[in-house]
């Protein structure tokens, strides 16, 4: 237990010292305020703000989380500092869990600092729906935690920091672009462009399920299900199960990679 705490504290303090936490919080804060005010010239309510900035958040949170986590094992193993840590009375499981909690605390701090301060400003200027905002914060936290978990997984598998960086970039593209493109491609091949583009057309269930496996889309669905303006603005149809299962999918993206990371790290030569 002590080991988990010491490692988690070290990860957090590292990112506090190198100003990562402050810088990222500032990005979130500015993004929210700019979206809320400058897009219309007056303060918009929280729902519209979330709707306006969601696409940026989906790009930003994965990048930030992957950058935090990609080198955490591969980089330290390559440098040799992990050998030294593991010569101390701590086992490998505790190292992984400690790093996971430490990095989660880093993103949680940035999300609650950045979006939190912005939320207070918006609440004063335009009023806030606390439930909507809270569900957005929780969704953001779950999304970043799943990417931290994913990055710890491939960081545990890969020998070199450079290949881990390459993998981080690939994973970002995979979930931000490739996944959606492939699914869309399949729809086009199967049904034809004309039919898909009809406004009344509803995609089959397998499409929604396959989309939901992607953590980014899970995040989107979770937010869409809880933030009303988003549904109205984007006029998207969402099967009801997407709303209820999307947080579960995100939680699985947190737990499964972490368990696999522990397994691979246990068997790794340092």
């Amino acid at each position: 237990m002590n080991g988990i705490f010491v490692i988690a504290k070290k990860e957090f303090m590292d990112n506090w010292r190198n100003k990562w936490i402050i810088a990222t919080s500032a990005i979130f804060l500015i993004l929210t305020l700019v979206t809320s005010y400058f897009s219309t010239g007056k303060w918009s309510d929280i729902g519209s703000t979330i709707a306006g900035m969601e696409t940026f958040v989906i790009l930003l949170i994965p990048i930030i989380s992957l950058m935090l986590g990609y080198a955490t094992i591969a980089g330290e193993a390559e440098r040799g500092s992990l050998s030294l840590i593991l010569s101390y009375p701590i086992n490998r499981k505790e190292v992984i869990i400690g790093k996971f909690f430490g990095l989660c605390l880093v993103v949680a701090t940035t999300i609650f600092l950045g979006f939190g301060i912005a939320g207070i400003v918006i609440a004063i200027k335009a009023g806030i729906d606390a439930a909507e905002y809270l569900s957005f914060l929780i969704a953001s936290l779950l999304l970043s935690m799943s990417y931290i978990s994913i990055s710890i997984l491939f960081s545990s598998l890969l020998k070199k920091r450079s290949t881990a960086l390459g993998t981080a970039i690939f994973i970002w593209f995979l979930f931000s672009m490739i996944w959606g493109m492939i699914l869309f491609g399949i729809l086009v091949i199967k049904y034809g462009m004309d039919i898909i583009m009809q406004e009344s057309w509803i995609a089959p269930d397998w499409y929604y399920i396959a989309a939901m496996i992607n953590p980014n889309q899970s995040f989107e669905m979770f937010v869409a299900a809880n933030v009303k303006p988003l549904q109205q603005l984007q006029r998207i149809y969402l099967p009801s199960y997407c709303g209820s299962f999307s947080p579960l999918v995100l939680i699985l993206w947190i737990i499964i990679p972490l368990i696999l990371a522990i397994f691979f790290f246990e068997n790794r030569d340092l």
């Binding site: 040799g80 010569s87 101390y88």
Partner: peptide, 14 residues
């Protein structure tokens, strides 16, 4: 490990 001190071949700190 509580009573072992180890000096690695390649030293690397933070």
């Amino acid at each position: 490990k509580k009573f072992i001190g180890y000096l690695p071949e390649t030293v690397s700190f933070y």
